[in-house]
Design a protein around this nucleic acid. Structure first.
Lengths: 207, 207, 207, 207
DNA sequence: TATGAATGAGACTTCATTCAT
DNA sequence: TATGAATGAAGTCTCATTCAT
């Protein structure tokens, strides 16, 4: 009964040597995801790429899913750093400037290891333990909603929960799609154009 | 290795019996995708569910991918019917009404066999021949852009290509996310609210 | 839920070709059990010995256990044939002769493929689905008890169920141990001695 | 391949700490055998349960088999204590009383840690160094034969070696089977019945 | 054309054991 | 002497696909 969730790491790497092994495994997983795709990312191949025996791999991660989950976590931590840092600057700004900044952040975030981002977005079966991707977005909703609350008097009357949903979903979709599927839209100065447009979309919606 | 990736049906099912076989195969694939997920959808299982021998399956479809692609096509054809029909009604309408209608259509479209929609959206590796999902959206962009052109004098000055991208992407993201991940937003009369909000978002952006 | 018991064959071999495959698998399993022991009887090795691909093996048996169970069944069917046939002759005999005959049968039975018998008796983990070995003995108890009932008036007053347990268990233990572990006791004419002794043991107990 | 099969402890645990480690290892092995069965008893798990590093385990026992053999030895030593002590009392008794006592002893012996006894009897592959289980019985034979010799004048003429085989094998089989597989036979006062029957079986055989 | 038996590469995983620290 | 990280052979099993009948 109560089988432990197969996505959590198996043991903490205490000694320095094992720390290196764990790092190598995650790094190898990410590299293979990017280079060969999710389907080709077998545990054997990951172990080989990490220069580690398959036995060691299973000493630290109980499954391929756990490894991928670790890569996702690492990626999300990276994103969060970008986003949170930038969002702090936004706190005091008026809506127009704030939204503009946020759109820029979103684009930056999507450009942080975009190949990995694409694989995670497009090849991961949102199944089993890998469904936990939503966690990340929930946090963004919360942060954005908090900002809206601090500026409520500049907004029209609206359910802030719903407004946050509309804004975050739209900005994320626009930047995601643009970065991953419409490189034409982002080439050179058209970046500015996209930022303008997305900002206009959101700002006029909120006011 | 390096087996040729075949995605197209092998032969047109000209005779009636063949037609029935093909239908049974696609139907079985869809049913299994929904019931058991992409991972569990083995060709042997599909053949069994279709009441057809595995040999026959390969007589009509050269690979599992081809089968899934056929399901996608069928689903997209269904979507297109809903969308195109409804979009025709939109042609003559002023922007506000047109957009409102389009949002409603998008929601309806996502509600057409939503379980299958979800599987296609979340479990399919967007890899190999299965990457062709974009095709569908391209057509929608084109239709929407055509509408915008017909109403250009009611719009602010803007690159219509870009505007279409912004509008279609946003509407699709909002309706998709709401239908698949935020059932709370769509329960009962809040549907109307979502339609209002999405309409406002797009209309004010365009003007 | 209700996962099918992993010891039953997977599908009936309908065509002649598959019948041959199934036979080869069981034969190979028995041979390897005898030659290399239970631990070395891996599915790969069995398939190889059977001249069949590992895939085919799993088409008919879902596990190593299922294969071993099939061997046990076949062995037990063989034993039953020996035992039942001989037991029929015993029906009308008086106790002394009947018991003597039964002891002889028991020895014969243990000598039917004794190497396989030994492996089944000594190397099988009586665990999981392989615990079903008892079935066989139950039938023997019943047959013996039926005989005792038919001769009740020649016996002292005794719970026949219990008496059957005592007699069958003793005869089985003596013949089993002698055949498998004490070849000295069975060499040449000492067989007769063992039969004498076992007969005396049981007959005097019953009267 | 061809690794040397080592079954003897590696060194005498002379110092106190070592002694504690060895004890912990054997205790852990026994506990895991009982709780999880032979298959699940991996050396890593045993080491963990013993609160000892896997390296230390191999410092004291060169293989998993050696560990299990140690458990068997400990169990057998326990049995021997029960049996020998009781058998001493038997020395001077007449046959009827002596046999009755021995049967009772046999039942007691099987009830000494019956769960472990069952695992040892049913899950251990009687293979490699683990085949040495017979040792124990040999000693019992010898003790019993010695008793018979001391009472030869009360017995019919018979090969005492053979008679010992018949008696010991029967008693052991009856008590073993009753304790492990026929709890019904041993519930409450039926114990007495079984003792009566087994005694009758052996006594009448010997006279 | 249909059938379904057969294939086998390759995925996942465990575990007894070694050895550097 | 103790530790525990690392090893890798070997085992179980699946599944897309082929091909003889």
């Amino acid at each position: 009964m109560a089988r432990r969730p197969l996505t959590n790491p198996r043991k903490q790497a205490s000694q320095e040597r094992s720390r290196a092994t764990v790092d190598a495994l995650i790094e190898a997983t990410a590299r293979i995801l990017v280079r060969d795709g999710f389907d080709k990312a077998s545990t054997n191949r990951i172990a080989e790429q990490a220069g580690v025996s398959i036995g060691s791999l299973y000493q630290y991660y109980p499954s391929k899913e756990a490894l991928v989950a670790a890569v996702i976590d690492r990626h999300n931590r990276g994103l969060m750093q970008v986003v949170q840092g930038a969002l702090a600057e936004v706190a005091g700004l008026p809506i127009e400037k704030a939204v503009r900044k946020m759109v820029a952040i979103a684009i930056d975030a999507h450009r942080l290891d975009p190949k990995l981002h694409r694989v995670l977005a497009e090849q991961l079966p949102r199944t089993g333990r890998l469904a936990k991707l939503e966690t990340f977005n929930r946090e963004i909703y919360a942060l954005f909603k908090a900002y809206l609350e601090s500026r409520r008097d500049e907004l029209r009357t609206v359910d802030l929960e719903l407004a946050a949903f509309v804004c975050v979903t739209s900005i994320e979709a626009l930047t995601h799609t643009a970065v991953l599927h419409r490189p034409d839209i982002l080439s050179g100065e058209t970046v500015a154009t996209l930022v303008d447009e997305a900002t206009r979309l959101v700002v006029r919606y909120l006011r």
